[in-house]
Design a protein around this nucleic acid. Structure first.
Length: 121
RNA sequence: CGACUCAGACAAAUGGUCGCGGCUGCAACGCCGAAAGGCUGCAGGUGAGGAAAGUCCGGGCUUCACAGGGCAGGAUGCCGGAUAACGUCCGGUGGAGGCGACUCCCAGGCCAGUGCAACAGAAAUAUACCGCCAGUCUUCUCUGCCAUGCAGGGUUAGUCUGGUAAGGGUGGAAAGGCGAGGUAAGAGCUCACCGCUGUUCUGGUAACAGGACAGGCUCUGUAAACCCCAUCCGAAGCAAGACCGAACAGAAAACAAUGUGGCGGCCCGUCACGUUUUCGGGUAGGUCGCUUGAGCCCGCUGGUAACAGCCGGCCUAGAUAGAUGACCAUUCAACGACAUAACCCGGCUUAUCGUCUGAGUCAUUUU
């Protein structure tokens, strides 16, 4: 189950925005709601205000990479929408990762029993 | 060595660990399926740009429209060529800039018509305000005489009439320029040179260039003002369009029958409703269109060149919410610019850290 399931259309996005809880920090905004599928689905939204096509693609890839590496630590059965804020422009992978993990902790979806970071190094 | 001009190439590199989209192969023992196959996994190979950008032109392709012609509207605008075509490119002509290599130019027509030209200036397509000149009259003044007047004169002042376009602090532009002659003063009025216009000769495919002769000069600028002339243009775009097609409207046939379900204690009553097959419209969704093409590279031939022809070689993204990323190490000019294909080509325009190559110019030094 390594394939990343993503939210496809604006209906699914709207559902998360409407019913989900949200937390935000300097770089990202995270909306989360439950689904009945038993898997996590990710949606990434980067507004045109953030930058041109190249900048937006870069941020999208960074967020997707963070999600890919951290997916095993997350609680299952959630729809997650990550919105990139204008401040996230031009920042490195480590900045985005820490912002993502910070928000995940606030949502209490992070499985903190194991120290994943220590394993990595 | 320095300052430049033109043309072209590249767009950080290498390795490791994870990861993604197509493609190919494998899996008789992973899952789904009757099968084809799909999912999943593994392996291999492949995977953005010089501008992919802006969407400003042109073409292919697709659907619709279309006997032919015209109007309207739009675009282009020196000449010749290249091309599928162009508003692009190449070579010329003319003009502008630079010592030069070279670069730049929306470069048709205001004697078809209409409009506009602020301010300044006497006057803006026409004028006589000042000035200059001539004449009449008046005044002033001088001289002479037979003297309250007459005659002759004048570097006086003024009125009126006429001539003039030389001069006049303006203006983008003031009825060709400059010099001489000429004249009461002046004026192409006349003449030389230059410019302009016309005719003609020579060279050139042509734009045009050079020469000869004549006219004497009538013609302000603006067409990036309307407009005129010449040439070209049917419309919309891959969300084009073609095919398959759950669901759900609709039609026909066959079958079932006076049925079944709701309201109701029951009857009456009332409301709602079939099943299968075929046809057909067509939504969600899927497949195609979708990458072999006016293609790229090397060489030869023709051409000043753009380009064309020929021989040989190559196959180089095809996603569909949208794939190129992350981390680590090393190197460099050390946080590396601008910027992400979306049907495909030919251009244009704009953005851009820098690095390299070739040809050439100028200046300096040396020989």
């Amino acid at each position: 189950m390594k394939h990343i399931f993503s939210l496809k259309n604006s209906l699914e996005f709207g559902n998360v925005y409407k019913r989900g809880k949200s937390y935000a920090n300097k770089y990202l905004v995270m909306y989360i709601t439950d689904n009945d599928l038993g898997i996590n689905r990710l949606g990434i939204s980067v507004s045109k205000k953030v930058g041109n096509s190249v900048v937006r693609h870069r941020i999208t890839r960074l967020i997707r990479e963070v999600y890919r590496l951290q997916e095993s630590r997350l609680t299952k059965g959630k729809d997650i929408v990550v919105v990139a804020r204008v401040n996230s422009k031009g920042h490195s992978y480590w900045d985005i990762e820490s912002a993502f993990l910070h928000l995940a902790k606030l949502h209490h979806i992070l499985d903190s029993s194991e120290e994943y970071r220590a394993d990595l190094s």
